[in-house]
Design a protein around this nucleic acid. Sequence first.
DNA 1: AAATTTTTTGACCACTTGGTAAATTCCACG
DNA 2: CGTGGAATTTACCAAGTGGTCAAAAAATTT
Lengths: 217, 217
Amino acid sequence: MNPKRLDLKTVPSKEPRRNTRIQQRNRELITEAALEVFSLYGFRGSTLDQIAERSGLSKPNLLYYFKNKEEIHRLLIDRLLETWLDPLKEISADGEPVEEIRKYINRKLELARDYPRESRLFANEMLQGAPRIQEELHELKVLVDEKVVLIRDWIKAGKLADLDPYHLFFSIWATTQHYADFDAQVQAVLEEGSARDKRFETAAQFLDKLFTGGLAP
Amino acid sequence: MNPKRLDLKTVPSKEPRRNTRIQQRNRELITEAALEVFSLYGFRGSTLDQIAERSGLSKPNLLYYFKNKEEIHRLLIDRLLETWLDPLKEISADGEPVEEIRKYINRKLELARDYPRESRLFANEMLQGAPRIQEELHELKVLVDEKVVLIRDWIKAGKLADLDPYHLFFSIWATTQHYADFDAQVQAVLEEGSARDKRFETAAQFLDKLFTGGLAP
DNA sequence: AAATTTTTTGACCACTTGGTAAATTCCACG
DNA sequence: CGTGGAATTTACCAAGTGGTCAAAAAATTT
């Protein structure tokens, strides 16, 4: 009843232009700042004011680009998981087993070196019991299950030591991400003014030895 | 000028009695609740109201027992570090090298199993860059340095594989604490209704194999 | 039981927090 | 140029925050 007259000229089409240069730049500024803050303090411990300050934008302006705090966090988490799952997908049934695992370890360690904030963001989420990413964890499980089958085959073929594949993944994740998540501790214990890159170099060599020893059939 | 008359009976001595039964019970209630909350949300993300509710005491009553939020946190951190350092101290120069390390790994894993909240409290602190525990980290470093010397001796004597001792510790900490800190992920990936104890059982066997393989000279 | 001390509460406060609304400024395009 | 939408700011709000204080209620001592 009494529908508003649909004026063909004014009502339709012209959605606000998305992805102007300004949009892109500011969304980038915001996510960059948010990553910094969220990765340190977790979702609850971070405030829009902190993100606003770090990004150089005002708080209301932040909320012009994102509906609310949670939406910013969501975007970061979603991005992160893509990056995180990639190396796992690349484990190939065609490669040499020990070599494939070693390559996986190396890729994961590179991620920890190059994206420590993403690693900490993930860690924060886990510590809180992963309330916001149950769905994504299921996706991870599916992928892991697939690779577990592959590894079991390798073990059966005598090409890998008989290690529980699930816990093998856990230990790889733990050791590599440790260098990002517990950087404060690693630095405090090593202390020598040794450069970050150098530390990761040594870590790579160590992990290689440790896992090669454990993996060889 | 005009000092209040010092009545010898009323003014002196009688400090308020500490450690009444009520004091003990309530301080325990508070630290218990605080551990629960802080281990989930970190210092910034936790609120006195949450702790008050979980402990069953009112917020002003909380602050009757502790000066402020930070003091509660401090107490938890201090307690935790004692427990955490203990197993490291027990690594003995008199034991069989590989066996000593294996025992250390087992003890650490037991801690992760029995005190997951403490582990997460520590992890939260690390993620934030360990602002409140620089001092304690130094204490840790001193202890680690001592054990590093011991391990280097063992390596020189051909009783251990030639692995960087610092990174050996890192990998042990990482793998064991992972089961407490990333429990949400471990559960999601394993999923089988497998009981917690069973998981730790499997983890213990896995870590034993992995490190034995890597450590043998 | 009275006096004293310990414990608990209720009312409050200043500041922070996530978020909104309207007004204003900026900017591309005809 | 001016005009319409995009971007930004200003002013604001309700709820949450860490923390205080004086008074009431319990316990304890005398």
